[in-house]
Design a protein around this nucleic acid. Structure first.
Length: 467
RNA sequence: GGCCCUAUCGUCUAAUGGUUAGGACGGCACUCUUUCAAGGUGCAAACCAGGGUUCGAUUCCCUGUAGGGUCACCA
């Protein structure tokens, strides 16, 4: 991965001939205010795929112009997660570092000079109470102030539009509905509206992919682009992912939305990424399983969905199953270690044996303890679960196991089956009794295999306890 | 409320001016099986409504309805 710093990058752009630059350049521009949102992962993925499908550049830009909302370590966490998903970037920028060079301030001042922006020296704290903050036309626009925040001077009676490449249609606004947005705050930092335009221009971004929540402020950006007099990148707005609970946009408060949380719950990055690929984009054929590499290969701008998809957890689980099945047994072992401390302490061959039994039976690794915790913790056995004849079953089983001279799956099975026949037990009933006695549950991994793993002593201990 | 976006099975979606409207998840049934999974087979399940345009609309246009987003010196 190439990682330029901002200064090096600025030097580059001054020496480069922009007119010959036809390469596709996309960016992911999160603000470091917390963990990565599932929708953010999808935006990053599509931006990455759009660039890489066309052998272009994918840029990571940290938008940290609101100093008050910074979260310690969020940028580092963001980078780690993106790399975990294979979304590596070619260039890296931090807006607060760029801000120091005065790039945003001078752009804003340029707009004032050309008459497209004005100073507002109202106290931001009182602005709301005075009704200045959400007014379409700010009273300061005619005051000729020479300091304060800088706001956009929107001209009425015009229309402004752009072609949205996700929706594949022209979207238009009357400027009468666009408010005099703040571009440069009184602390000297740009707002998103200014920074995004200045940076996308300076970094030669060709395609902007962002969330639908940005659509309403697009006319502001369009105006700034126009007044700065440069080429506007193509812009596309991705659908919102809806909560299956509320039917509304996924919210940090109500829904589980953070990528890190899904990883903790035992979802594999490949599975999560594959799931997210198909929320808002679909291929022409019916293929559903894609690695990142395959996805990049088939990705195109025509596959975008216009309607908001609902987050379907069942389908995510299914994807996770598919990828868990493909895992090598060593990888399964590794994943289980994150879920259970006792497992980590077990002998290596025991770990492998347990992993084999569990691999096809779980949707996420967090299910491990419910399914296979009995290997490490003695279960509480609810005797009401037992069927008829369970006492006979148990005494026969104990007898067989005690006499068994070799602790081996085949030997155990044949010895058990022999006695089942002799006593004319129902095979299923007999093993269900053993299953409950040993695991405390009616649905478990294969019971003979489990007993072999548990070892003779522990198996007998548990059988004795309930008989 | 203003502005903007959207509308195919419960969910993710494909295709199409003429099709038995396809696939996947989930559901159900059967099968496999000492439980649960996994696997296999099959079934049910959709074009929001009303007007146009057209020989013909799920598809194109309009209206309605419904859903979503957004209205900060936050991003």
């Amino acid at each position: 991965m190439k990682c330029y710093n901002s200064i090096a990058r600025m030097k580059m752009s001054t020496t480069k001939d922009k007119s010959t630059n036809s390469i596709i350049r996309t960016r992911f521009a999160p603000s470091p205010t917390g963990f990565l949102h599932i929708g953010g992962l999808r935006t990053a993925l599509y931006s990455y795929a759009l660039a890489k499908h066309n052998v272009g550049d994918f840029i990571l830009r940290i938008e940290d112009t609101d100093q008050k909302r910074q979260v310690e370590g969020a940028t580092e966490a963001l980078k780690i997660v993106l790399e975990k998903f294979g979304l590596s970037w070619d260039e890296y920028f931090v807006q607060s570092e760029r801000q120091a060079s005065g790039i945003y301030k001078s752009a804003a001042e340029k707009l004032v000079e050309s008459g497209h922006a004005f100073y507002c020296n109202c106290d931001p704290k009182n602005a709301k109470e005075q009704g200045y903050s959400n007014q379409l036309r700010d009273p300061c626009r005619d005051k000729n102030n020479s300091k304060g925040a800088i706001k956009l001077k929107v001209v009425d009676g015009e229309s402004i539009s752009f072609f949205d490449f996700v929706h594949a249609k022209e979207i238009e606004w009357e400027t009468d509905t666009v408010y005099d947005a703040t571009l440069l705050k009184s602390d000297g930092f740009p707002t998103y509206h200014l920074a995004v335009v200045v940076d996308d221009l300076d970094m030669d971004i060709t395609h902007v992919l962002r969330g639908h929540d940005w659509l309403p402020s697009t006319p502001i950006h369009l105006l700034v682009y126009k007044f700065l007099g440069e080429n506007v990148p193509k812009i596309g707005h991705l659908t919102d992912i809806l909560s299956s609970e509320t039917g509304k946009k996924l919210s940090k408060r109500r829904d589980s939305v953070f990528v890190e949380d899904f990883i903790k719950l035992g979802y594999l990055p490949e599975a999560l990424l594959n799931f997210v690929m198909l929320l808002g984009w679909a291929p022409k054929d019916n293929q559903e399983l894609y690695s990142l590499e395959e996805f990049v290969k088939v990705f195109d701008k025509d596959g975008f969905q216009d309607a908001n998809p609902v987050f379907n957890a069942d389908k995510l689980d299914w994807f996770n199953c598919q990828y868990i099945k493909e895992l090598s047994i060593e990888e399964v072992v590794k994943q289980i270690k994150f879920q259970n401390i006792d497992f980590e302490k077990a002998e290596k061959d025991v770990q492998v044996e347990i992993a084999k039994l569990v691999q096809e039976r779980i949707h996420t690794f967090s299910e491990f303890n419910a399914l296979a915790g009995f290997f490490f913790n003695e279960p509480k056995v609810d005797t009401s679960l037992f069927g008829e004849n369970y006492k006979k079953h148990l005494s026969v089983a104990k007898e067989v196991i005690e006499k068994l001279d070799k602790w081996d799956l085949d030997e155990l099975n044949t010895a058990l089956m022999e006695r089942i026949k002799k006593h004319e037990f129902k095979v299923g009933d007999f093993f269900m009794t053993l299953r409950i006695a040993i695991t405390g549950s009616k649905s478990t991994p294969p019971i003979n295999e489990s007993m072999i793993i548990l070892e003779k002593e522990k198996t007998l201990e548990r059988l004795k306890k309930v008989s």
